[in-house]
Amino acid sequence: MRLIGVDPGLRFTGWGIVDAEDNRLRHVANGVIRSGSGELAQRLKRLHGLDLPLWERYGNWLGAALGGDFGYSRTYNRPVMDILLPRLGNTVILLGLSSLLAILIAIPLGVIAATRPQSPLDGAINLFCFAGISVPPFWLALVFILVFAVSLGWLPAGGMGAPGESLFARLEFLVLPVVTLTIASMASYTRFARAAMIEVLRQDYIRTARAKGLSGRRTLFGHGLRNAMLPLTTIIALDFGSLFSGALITETMFGYLGMGKLIYDSILGNDFNVALVGLLLATLVVLIGNFLADIAYAVLDPRISFRTLEAA
C-alpha cells in the first residue's frame, strides 16, 4: 500500500491513520463478544465456536488443522492460509536480504578483528558490535524514520509499495527495514565470527601451515576461515528465532506486511486462528534452524556423524 502524497511527513501520518482506523474497527467486534450477553454476542460466540469447552475447541482445531484446514481469520474473513502465505513471502524477502547482508559484512569484519586482537581496529569493531547488540531495535527504526523519512525525505517511512509496482520501485520501501534488521544480527554474527576465528587461529594446524611456508592469506582463508565456518554456520542457523523476533519489531515499526506484523496484529486483535498458525510457523522456523544446524555440522565436518550427535 503506497500512501498518497510525496511529502514524507504526510506519508508518515497517513500511514498512522490507516493503522489506527484498522484497530478501531477490530475493537468494535471484540467489544461485542466481550460484553458476553445479547443475541448478537451469542451468535458471534457460536460462529467462532467459543461456546464449547476449551479441550473440545482445541480438539476441533487440531483435527481440522491436521487436515489442512486452519480456519478463517476473524479480521479479514478469509482462510488463514490465504492471508498467511503472502505475508510469509514478504518476511522471507526481508529476512533473506538482511541475513545475507549481515553475513557478508560480519565475516570480513570478524576476520579483520580476529587477526588483529587488541588493536585499535579490533576495539572499534568490538564497540560497534556491542552497540548493535544493545540498541533497542524499535528505537533504531524510529531514529531512521526521523532522519531518513521525516528530516531528509529520502526514503518512505513505511509501507510496502503498490502490489503492481516493479520490484525496483518497491525496493525503496525495503531499505530501512532491511538495514534496521541487519544491524543487530550483523553485530552478533561479527562477534561469533571473531571468537570462532581466534579459536581456530590458536590451533596447531595453523602453526603448521605457517611453518611450512604457506602465505598468510592462504593460511587465513584456506585453513582458518574454513574451520571457523563450522561453529559460525551453527550459530547462524540457531539464530533463526531471534531473527524472527527482530522481524516482528521491524515490520510493526515500518508497516511492512510480513509475518511478524501479522502475528502482532492478530494477537492484539484477538484473531486467534491467524495468531495460532502464525506462532506455529514461527516455532517451525526455529526448529528448522536447529535441524539445519545439525545437518550443517555433519556436512561441514566429516569427523562428526549423526551417530556421534545422538550419543552427545
Binding site: G241, S242, S245, N290
Partner: peptide, 12 residues
C-alpha cells in the same frame, strides 16, 4: 522453551 519464538510468545 528455546524453540518458542521469544517475542511473539511474550506478546501472547
Amino acid at each position: 522453551v528455546i524453540a518458542l519464538p521469544l517475542l511473539p510468545l511474550l506478546i501472547v
